[in-house]
Amino acid sequence: MKVKEIMTTRVQTVSESCTMKEAAEHMKSLDVGSLPVCNNSNKLVGVVTDRDMVIRGLTSEINSSTPVRQVMSSNPVFVSPDTGVHEAARLMAKHQIRRLPVVENNEIVGIVSIGDLAVRDIYVNEAGDALSSISESNNSMM
Rank of each mutant, 00 (worst) to 15 (best):
T66K: 12
I62R: 15
T66L: 11
V54S: 01
S41Y: 10
P67V: 02
S64T: 10
G57M: 07
G46L: 08
I62G: 07
T49R: 06
L44I: 02
D50G: 01
R51Y: 03
V45Q: 02
L35V: 09
T66P: 13
K43A: 08
L35Q: 04
L58R: 03
I62S: 12
K43W: 00
V68S: 10
I55M: 11
I62Y: 15
M53N: 02
P67N: 03
S65T: 15
V68L: 09
G57N: 05
D52A: 09
M53F: 01
V47M: 14
N42Y: 09
G57W: 07
L44C: 01
M53P: 03
E61S: 15
I55Y: 04
D52F: 12
V68H: 11
R56W: 12
V32F: 09
N39I: 11
V54A: 07
N40P: 01
S64D: 14
G57P: 11
D50K: 06
S34K: 03
S65G: 10
R56D: 10
N63Q: 01
T49A: 03
T59A: 15
K43T: 10
G46Y: 07
N42F: 11
S60Q: 15
C38Q: 08
D50A: 02
G57D: 08
M53K: 02
S34G: 12
L35F: 09
G33M: 03
G33Q: 05
G46I: 08
G57I: 06
L44M: 00
P36L: 04
R51W: 05
V47K: 04
V68Q: 08
I55P: 00
P36D: 02
S41N: 14
R56S: 12
